[in-house]
Simulated scan of single mutants.
Amino acid sequence: MPGEVRKFDVIVLGAGATGLMCASVAGQRGRRVLLLEHNALPGRKILISGGGRCNFTNIRCTPANFISENPHFAKSALALYQPQHFLELVERYGICWHEKTLGQLFCDHSARQIVDMLLAECERGHVDIRMNARGVAVEGDSGGFRVSCSAGEFASGALVVATGGLSIPKMGATGLAYDVARQFGLKVISPRPALVPLLLSGTERNWTKLAGVSADVIAQANRGPTFREKLLVTHRGLSGPAVLQVSSYWRPGEVIQVDFAPDMNGRSSLLGSMLEHGARRDEVAFKQALREVLPQRLAAQLAEVGAPEGWSNAALEAAEGQVRRWEFRPSGTEGFEKAEVTAGGVDTAGLNSKTMEARAVPGLYFAGEGVDVTGHLGGFNFQWAWASAVAAARSF
């Protein structure tokens, strides 16, 4: 009937990692669940993750791997649903997996297996999934919530907003989570690109001539921890795992610091040979010392822009210190188009950490990337998706 409002126990907005997980768990708990997605296909970001193999969790996951205005907020959900729990689900479906470096778990074959698994879990829970549900509008009333969209009009006592953040708009990313939060009086921490390449300009632009060069480094932003991973020079600036990690902590106008020689092949000093009595001290010797530890093109660049002012012991020690603590001042990021995730989001001060429910709006839940909890690179954001989804689903 035209204008008929269909009623459910729970409406979940967004059929990404968080939404699929939340809907499946709630459905299997006996709730009548509607899952609305504005894209034509579910799990689009899952499919492109991990080079198409989905880095679905990290076995070393701890609350320290997440960024938030409240660093304690994620603890409850992460304790409730741990990497081993999701791994058990993966193995139940016979999905082969492998561990890469630093605890990262990937599918052996395809990320499609994770999407198919989540859809099968939704089917087990008799979840009603509606794709191409565009123009979503939410209203609150005394009985809960009413959602209208191109798929129809629906009502429920609980509403879970799992629509993600602003990263990768070509995959359908929108700011709906923030709009709904503000509509119901919740504060939103300004969203910003995270796990994103950084841009170089001005005199630092000359580094881009090394595009394609990578090196093992230790990188750090002003306010963040150190990360020892690969740095990659691009045609526009810096990328690679080390830079993506520090980008989540970086703010415009600040510097990032890079140790280009974390492993000196057993040496105690990068330029120690030049400090020996009678040793050659000039540009050639400096470049050679760098080449013994660094990729040749990188060594040549550092020799050009970081040569000592004079060749005294103090000047050589200062030059070594600079190579070990090189400062870049990025001019910006590649933006949400290239960001793997969105930092910031719905302020956790307005949410219950055990249930993801809005403190001032009973029945309204926010989970996943749209919340101000952002993981490091390496499967942590998927683990937050699973954990926050389960925390919400088990509370109604």
Rank of each mutant, 00 (worst) to 15 (best):
residue 210 L to Q: 13
residue 219 A to P: 05
residue 112 R to G: 13
residue 111 A to Y: 00
residue 131 M to T: 14
residue 156 S to L: 02
residue 143 G to C: 13
residue 151 A to Q: 12
residue 135 G to I: 04
residue 139 E to W: 09
residue 163 T to Y: 10
residue 214 S to M: 08
residue 134 R to F: 03
residue 193 P to Q: 07
residue 185 G to T: 06
residue 180 V to M: 07
residue 215 A to L: 09
residue 202 G to S: 00
residue 141 D to E: 11
residue 154 F to A: 01
residue 98 H to T: 12
residue 115 V to C: 06
residue 140 G to C: 10
residue 163 T to C: 15
residue 203 T to Q: 14
residue 119 L to F: 03
residue 175 G to F: 09
residue 161 V to R: 08
residue 97 W to H: 15
residue 100 K to Q: 13
residue 208 T to W: 08
residue 143 G to K: 14
residue 213 V to A: 11
residue 163 T to N: 05
residue 209 K to N: 05
residue 91 E to V: 05
residue 137 A to C: 11
residue 123 E to I: 00
residue 115 V to M: 04
residue 106 F to Q: 10
residue 89 L to Y: 08
residue 125 G to T: 08
residue 189 I to W: 01
residue 204 E to H: 11
residue 154 F to L: 03
residue 109 H to F: 15
residue 147 V to D: 11
residue 97 W to L: 13
residue 89 L to D: 10
residue 132 N to T: 12
residue 221 A to D: 04
residue 159 L to K: 01
residue 134 R to T: 11
residue 175 G to P: 05
residue 190 S to C: 04
residue 170 K to V: 12
residue 126 H to D: 07
residue 215 A to W: 01
residue 202 G to V: 04
residue 138 V to I: 10
residue 115 V to E: 01
residue 215 A to Q: 11
residue 128 D to L: 09
residue 89 L to K: 13
residue 156 S to W: 01
residue 135 G to Y: 06
residue 203 T to N: 13
residue 192 R to L: 09
residue 200 L to V: 02
residue 211 A to M: 08
residue 184 F to A: 00
residue 202 G to P: 01
residue 154 F to H: 03
residue 117 M to V: 06
residue 175 G to Y: 01
residue 208 T to A: 10
residue 107 C to K: 02
residue 127 V to P: 02
residue 94 G to K: 10
residue 162 A to P: 04
residue 166 L to V: 03
residue 137 A to N: 12
residue 162 A to C: 04
residue 98 H to S: 13
residue 187 K to T: 11
residue 148 S to T: 14
residue 168 I to V: 14
residue 124 R to H: 12
residue 163 T to D: 01
residue 88 E to Y: 11
residue 182 R to C: 04
residue 145 F to H: 05
residue 107 C to Q: 05
residue 187 K to G: 09
residue 151 A to H: 04
residue 182 R to T: 09
residue 195 L to I: 03
residue 202 G to Q: 02
residue 143 G to A: 15
residue 120 A to Q: 15
residue 190 S to V: 10
residue 153 E to L: 07
residue 166 L to D: 08
residue 152 G to Q: 05
residue 122 C to Y: 00
residue 139 E to C: 05
residue 176 L to Y: 06
residue 127 V to R: 01
residue 132 N to C: 11
residue 154 F to K: 02
residue 170 K to R: 15
residue 113 Q to D: 15
residue 132 N to S: 15
residue 210 L to E: 12
residue 159 L to H: 01
residue 211 A to C: 08
residue 181 A to F: 03
residue 183 Q to G: 04
residue 91 E to Q: 15
residue 219 A to D: 03
residue 180 V to R: 02
residue 208 T to Y: 02
residue 211 A to F: 02
residue 194 A to V: 04
residue 109 H to G: 06
residue 175 G to K: 01
residue 151 A to V: 03
